[in-house]
Design a protein around this nucleic acid. Structure first.
Lengths: 121, 121
DNA sequence: TATATAATTCAACGCGTATTGAAGTAATAT
DNA sequence: ATATTACTTCAATACGCGTTGAATTATATA
């Protein structure tokens, strides 16, 4: 998945309702009515958020083989893992580097020396 | 950090400009003018996004000891790592469970048996 | 003191999006 | 056929947020 897709996934993730939905799905695929009960939100609003979760690829759907009116939601493992790896690398503290002295008065020793001599005057 | 603070961090992260800013800061503390050049955005807009990054605790500031007009930005390692750990756990594929049969026609074997007998009739 | 510089804050605009209630779709039951 | 159900889509509203340009603050220099 390209970088923009991943950033979009983060955007999708950055909503308490969708976080809770993902967490519920993670602990067993569920149908709209259960989400609606658990989060105390109208079914159409749940549908809306699930649509967004599906659009960015974080979840996928499956219809009940006995009664196709029911829809069950699953985590899309592939996207899930990809997002996980990306964030784990992006937030890697080992990559943090000290300030590159490319800008500002402290960026050159010359400037520091000049400053120092001014103070001395 | 509480869960709402972490979700807020994700929300803050879910913006291409701020992702780029964080990435630049990660590779050496920088000042506003450099961000402005690198991202080709007006300095006040950079300030705005840095303020949001600082507010949620992802970055912190430091003033130049020689000329306090310059401000340098650093990654706040503590928040950085905390967010990393949280997301790594939340997106752990090992936690994904199969559907709990608590809802829908396939939720009970009884229902399946009834359905089966209807088909047979 | 006056001017310049680095950055921030403010006011306002426009776009996107979460939410709401109603209408629509698809599948099943009577 | 008609009604019911599970869910989705639609239209409308309201709020939040990114962006912009101007004004402001803080600091340094002439």
């Amino acid at each position: 998945m390209e970088i923009n897709g991943l950033i979009n996934c983060i955007k999708v993730l950055a909503d308490p309702t969708r976080m809770k939905l993902l967490d519920l799905i993670k602990h067993g695929t569920q149908c709209n009515c259960e989400f609606s009960d658990a989060l105390e939100l109208p079914p159409n609003l749940i549908s809306h958020h699930l649509r967004i979760l599906r659009k960015c690829g974080l979840v996928e759907t499956e219809k009940d083989p006995l009664d196709a009116r029911w829809v069950y939601y699953n985590i899309n493992k592939k996207t899930f893992i990809e997002l996980r790896e990306f964030l784990y690398e992006f937030l890697d503290p080992a990559e943090i580097q000290p300030r590159a002295l490319s800008c500002g008065p402290s960026s050159s020793l010359l400037a520091m020396a000049e400053k120092f001599s001014n103070i001395k005057k």
